Simulated scan of single mutants.
Amino acid sequence: MTAVDPLLSIRGLNMRFGGVKALTDVSMDVAPGSIVSIIGPNGAGKTTFFNMICRLYEPSAGQIRFQDRDLLHCKPHDLAGQGISRTFQNLALFRHGTVVDNLLVGMHAHLKSGVFGGAWYWGRTSREECMARERVETIIEFLEIEEIRHQPVSTLSYGLQKRVELGRALATQPKLLLLDEMVSGMNHEETEDIARFVLDLRDELGITVLMIEHDMDVVMDISDTVHVLNFGCMIASGTPAEVAGNPAVVEAYLGVAKS
């Protein structure tokens, strides 16, 4: 794959729920090493779009290719091994597990030892667990959560829990990270921390980020490209400045200034 080839390529994506058109002829490319945002009003089809990429929904029509591989031939549980990971708008952590326990779950796709190896805990099994724990410690340091590594997730603030969920997604070693409303419900300081981490994901770890986000300050500050959905249709694409100045976007999403 050359630098100019898209990491993720979407063509003519359509989704119907009975007589309801959730998405209509949506196409986009996500370049490697970029931060791409999808914005739009509630009900515009953003999460449906993510669910199709993650193979939770079967498109009515269209193509989804990742690293030139047809994702429509993949099962949802195959995606972590392919290099795609996701966070959810609603927390989906093991609340009674510690931070380390939750991050280790993300390493599962990369552990190859079977039942017998796990029972005896020797050879490759032991080496794999050491590797997994080293990886987890690297993520903990990256996300600056060293002091809470052994705390149960249920005792943490909402912002820290979101950070742990991001860490678990990173533990799968993704090439493409899908972030669904990552800063929703966070205060200003927590939001700034997550925005900084997302930039570091791209700049330091080389991870491509595709995110759904309502916080327009975050979108405009860190995105390379912004795509706008409205009623399931793509109405604008471009740089943050181009999208912010697009009359169709202003009317559909940002609001029309009153005279």
Rank of each mutant, 00 (worst) to 15 (best):
L91R: 04
D68G: 11
S85G: 09
I84K: 10
L93R: 13
R95S: 14
H96Y: 13
Q82H: 13
Q63C: 02
A80R: 05
K75R: 15
F88G: 04
L72R: 12
V100Q: 09
F66P: 00
D68N: 14
Q63N: 06
R95H: 11
S85N: 05
F66R: 00
F88H: 11
I84N: 05
L72K: 07
L79V: 11
R95T: 14
Q67Y: 07
R86W: 10
Q63Y: 05
R86T: 10
F66A: 02
H77F: 13
D78Y: 08
V99L: 09
P76R: 03
A80D: 02
R95P: 08
L93F: 07
C74M: 12
T87S: 08
C74E: 15
Q67L: 10
T87R: 04
T87C: 07
P76M: 08
I64V: 14
F94K: 02
P76S: 09
L71F: 05
F88N: 01
T98S: 15
I84L: 12
R65L: 02
H73N: 12
H77T: 07
V100Y: 05
T87A: 03
D68Q: 12
Q82N: 03
R95V: 04
D70S: 00
D70W: 04
D68W: 01
H73S: 14
D101F: 10
S85W: 06
N90I: 14
L93A: 06
Q89P: 06
